[in-house]
Write a protein that binds this DNA or RNA. Structure first.
Length: 410
RNA sequence: GGUGAGUUACUCAAGCGGCCAACGAGGGCAGACUGUAAAUCUGCUGACUAUGUCUUCGAAGGUUCGAAUCCUUCACUCACCA
């Protein structure tokens, strides 16, 4: 009897570890994680997983969800998530992956961003198993002396080993001292919170390891395990998904937009998204891939399914299917979307001006160029005359394939 | 602190007194082909009811009929020296 329970427990732990390992890029000190998970399943003891973020951009996108889903898995297996709002560190700016010094942010925007971040993070995370910390709490106390003390624990040479610093240094670009401080401060968070595990993107590896280094230096009896997750590429398939590059899919964007954006990614990138975002098992994904390769499944179908899965995750099945129908309507049958923004003008208006006012062209100059190239359609018909005045009536104007607006002239 | 080099559009990068709204590459947008995919080919890529006008080459002044180009000051970046 006892043996049976033990065996069952062992299986559960193995399963948990399997889920934890899936899709990770690297795990440092897996043994420690095993120990923590085992202890949870045998003694019911919880442990902590730390994650930090810079409250720089207000909206979360799919790239963030890669991490959040991993955290959710941890919560399922006994972890308490320590969510650190880097309100202090954000005033410095994380140099990671940056080719130049980042601009510092003012405090009000940071706080506002932090709030929306939390609201959105809890779409995925379990609120009851999450603790939120603002790192200004301990950094305000640390003081100049503390900061100097902290900075004696690491050498410039080692700091310069870091890939992005090294590149910038060699390329003759500037690196400010505050940027050297950033990894130290992030690591110090782990000292304050005595975290058991820290998780971040692969580009965060250096900073994450700093946590281990500092925990050792400050004699916290343990060193955190480190997990890095792959970085999700943005819509272009090359650069990291980010708001500033405008290659992201935001989780609060409307279902139609999410659906359309997923469908616009390349076939190669699609597999990457499957791997990192889908809840399908790796075997199922491999099967799909094989199907596409031998021609038995059309890649478009596979992509559609991914889009539906993702929309359904942030909304529901029903809206996901509506998004698909809408998409097919507009792009397969070349019809007009059922909803679009509407603009009303009191008097007849020059077409170029109307396009600008309807926010689908940035300038009348651009509008003229697009007309010359045949990119503008009015009521489904190509427009040739760039002097056209819109008289009374209702018009559906279209720029390129995806920008629509309804214009009414009274 | 000293010496030298540099700062050009979204990015890289030419231009070094008029032919400059500024070569070229990447990116982006659009058209053709498609599955709004990729690849490929083509066009566009400062603004303005526009064969013209206005504003842009780190900032401010100056020289000149005329300045991204020459001069002065300032700011920033880098290298070497201290």
């Amino acid at each position: 009897m006892l043996i049976a329970i033990k065996q069952k427990r062992g299986l559960m732990i193995q399963k948990a570890l399997g889920e934890i390992k899936r899709g990770t890029s690297e795990i440092i000190d897996l043994e420690y994680i095993e120990k923590l998970v085992t202890r949870y399943y045998t003694e019911g003891k919880t442990y902590t997983v730390k994650v930090g973020f810079d409250p720089t951009g207000a909206d979360l996108h799919l790239g963030h969800t890669v991490l959040l889903h991993k955290l959710k898995i941890f919560q399922k297996h006994g972890a308490t998530v320590q969510l650190i709002i880097g309100d202090f560190t954000a005033t410095i700016g994380d140099p990671t992956g940056k080719s130049e010094t980042r601009k510092v942010m003012d405090r009000d925007t940071i706080i506002a961003n932090a709030k929306t971040y939390q609201d959105q993070a809890f779409l995925i995370l379990d609120r009851d198993k999450t603790e939120i910390f603002y790192n200004s709490v301990w950094f305000d106390k640390l003081g100049a002396a503390g900061l100097v003390g902290l900075s004696t624990l690491f050498s410039v040479a080692r700091m310069l080993e870091r890939d992005d610093f090294e590149k910038r240094y060699k390329a003759g670009q500037s690196i400010s001292i505050s940027e050297f401080l950033y990894p130290l401060l992030q690591g110090y968070d782990s000292v304050e919170l005595k975290s058991d595990i820290e998780i971040g993107g692969t580009d965060q590896k250096f900073n994450l390891l700093m946590g281990r280094h500092l925990q050792r230096s400050y004699n916290i009896k343990k060193e955190q395990a480190v997990i890095t997750m792959p970085i999700l590429e943005g819509l272009d398939g090359v650069q990291k998904m980010s708001k500033s590059l405008d290659n992201y899919i935001g989780i609060t964007e409307n279902p139609n937009t999410i659906y359309a954006k997923v469908l616009s990614i390349s076939d190669t990138l699609m597999w990457r998204y499957y791997e990192l975002l889908s809840t399908k098992t790796l075997d199922e994904i491999a099967l799909l891939k094989k199907g596409v390769e031998d021609g038995s499944i059309h890649p478009k179908i596979v992509k559609e399914n991914l889009a539906i899965e993702l929309v359904a995750r942030f909304y529901n099945e029903e809206l996901a299917n509506i998004a698909k129908e809408e998409f097919d309507k507009v792009f397969k049958s070349n019809e007009v979307p059922s909803e679009m923004s509407e603009f009303i003008f009191e008097t007849p208006i020059w077409i170029c001006k109307a396009l600008v006012d309807a926010n689908i062209e940035p300038s009348t100059s651009q509008a003229r160029r697009d007309i010359a190239q045949g990119a503008i359609k009015i009521n489904q018909e190509k427009l040739v005359d760039d002097q056209l005045q819109l008289e009374n009536g209702e018009y559906i104007v279209q720029v390129g394939k995806r920008k629509f607006a309804k214009i009414k002239v009274l």
